[in-house]
Amino acid sequence: MAISTRTLKTPALKTPTLKSRRNSRRYAADAGLLFAAAAFVLPLAWVLLSSVDPEADLKVKVPDGLTFDNFDAVLEPDITFTPLLNSLILCGGATLLTVVCAALAAYPLSRFRSRLNRPFLLTILFATSLPITAIMVPVYALFVQVDLIDTMQGTIFFFAASQLPFAIWLMKNFMDGVPKELEEAAWTDGASSLQSLIRIVLPLMGPGVAVVTVFSFVMMWGNFFVPFMLLLSPDQMPASVSINDFFGNRGTVVYGQLAAFSIIYSTPVILLYVLVARRLGGGFALGGAVKG
């Protein structure tokens, strides 16, 4: 009895039930996401609120007052400016080196067929996923022997080398997307490979170059282990290492200042990420890039 009525009613009711089911499912999904967002936002809220709180401690709370003293206190040459400048020199130099080398290397890989391409690309792909952390001890030992320890240039070279596999891989994939016909015209006019790379290919793959640049820079800016191992003197330390001085060296930890410094140090990479994500229409998911 019940079964027969149900089968009779189903066709008439199908559209509204499906629709209301979808609606209720959307509310459920919204609720689930908001819950996750609330959990994820707590640590972020701590750093934002503590940075303007004169009495900051370790938990999220409404500030006891609004102050910029924390920012004032950390905006000193030896706390903020020198470490940030060091970060900029390290990461900027290494990013420049990475992008130039990757663009040069990607060009023949993308444009000319050779039987060495495949093994080379496979090696590159293999190297992209090696845990760099694992080779830091031998790198340290090696750098001591060749006198590159505690030098900016040594660290820049290592940063660039560690980022290169992924940069070459990304760059080659972006370059494959630029049609070859445009260059062939330039070749017949007598342009060299280097000229056509610089004048034709790179300008056409601007967004791709931007992604490789920003990605390399962001990865290095946040990297702690490499400078922590390869640099020794405090005046060369980038922000990723010097931030630890808020513990230990300065006696009791002033959490408000730590929060303020964290914000100053993190802002550039967040801005860069937003810049790239916007420019590529939100389609910039690293996952998509990794997938090729």
């Binding site: 996401l33 701590w46 750093v47 370790l58 990297n223 730590l258 964290s262």
Partner: peptide, 25 residues
């Protein structure tokens, strides 16, 4: 958009900063 933004911010933050935030948490 809101959730995506928050989750991605946690990912983009430098590793050491993320460490401090969760240490405090």
């Amino acid at each position: 958009t809101l959730t995506g933004g928050i989750v991605i911010t946690a990912w983009v933050l430098p590793e050491v900063v993320a460490g401090f935030l969760l240490y405090a948490f």
